[in-house]
Simulated scan of single mutants.
Amino acid sequence: MAVFIHRSWWSLTDNAISDLGKVNLPYNWVMNVSLVVAAILGIYYALGLFKEAKHPTMKLGIWIFILGLMFLAGIGIFPEGTSPHYYVSWGFFITASFGMLVAGIGLYLGREKQLGIITAIIFVLSWILGLWAMKVFRGVAVSEFIGIFGIIAWHYMVLAKILRKEKEI
């Protein structure tokens, strides 16, 4: 919705996603509230993953991922134009993706080898493509979306595994 509201000036290749929520921007709350709500819902989801965690490494990864989601809420609470914004933004991408990787290692060690390997592939590809996009485009939105889509893809793979498991019961 924030992209639609600010479509007259915002560009995927020339801006950051955070530009949509910057201080003093009309309707910045659309972006910032969405980030906080997404973080809260993500934390609720991640807490539910503990039931599926068969290996301590996966539990550690989930805790790191939850920390990343707290940084995501921080992006909405400290929008672009505030001093903590840069740190909470990087904090989100680094800890959420690292948490995903550690949880993936836990999946691998806990007899979900295929899902663990796919998690590692998503992590590596997301970072390679994200760093590439930072060099190619003026803005960082493409890089940010690559990271976010990697996390979303991982979420749906884990969710599909959980739903298949429940169907078997």
Rank of each mutant, 00 (worst) to 15 (best):
F71D: 13
A133E: 06
P26A: 03
V142L: 11
Y45Q: 05
I121G: 13
F98M: 13
A96E: 09
T95Y: 10
L49M: 12
Y86A: 05
N24M: 13
I162Q: 06
R138A: 14
L25A: 02
Y87A: 02
A46N: 08
S126K: 12
G110F: 01
I117H: 11
I62C: 03
I169S: 13
A39T: 01
M58S: 01
N32T: 10
V30L: 13
A133R: 05
D14V: 07
K54C: 08
A53D: 08
G21L: 00
L159Q: 11
Y27I: 03
M70K: 00
I148H: 09
K22G: 10
L131S: 14
F137N: 07
W10H: 05
F98G: 09
K22P: 07
A153M: 13
R138N: 15
S34E: 07
F71I: 08
V124M: 14
F149W: 15
V3L: 13
V36G: 01
P79Y: 01
L41Q: 05
R164H: 13
H6P: 07
S143P: 03
Y87L: 04
H6S: 09
W132D: 08
Y108F: 15
W9Q: 09
T95N: 08
L101R: 07
I128K: 12
F137W: 12
I146V: 15
W63E: 00
F92Q: 00
L47C: 09
G21A: 04
K51D: 12
L129I: 15
G21S: 05
A46Q: 06
I105Q: 03
I152E: 04
F92P: 03
K167A: 14
S11W: 10
A73V: 01
L47A: 08
W63Q: 01
T82Y: 09
E168Y: 09
I121R: 14
T57R: 08
L35W: 02
K22S: 05
L35A: 00
L41N: 05
Y45E: 08
S89D: 08
K54V: 08
K54G: 13
I77M: 07
D19T: 04
H155Q: 00
R7N: 04
A120M: 15
A16P: 02
V142R: 01
P84N: 06
Y86L: 08
Y27P: 00
E168G: 06
D19H: 11
A2F: 01
G81S: 02
M134V: 12
V136Y: 14
L131G: 12
V36L: 04
A133H: 09
L20C: 03
N24S: 06
L25C: 06
M58L: 01
L131I: 09
L41V: 08
Y108C: 02
V23I: 14
K54S: 12
G91R: 10
L60V: 06
A141W: 02
K165V: 10
K59M: 06
A16G: 11
I128E: 14
A103Q: 12
I122D: 11
L129Y: 13
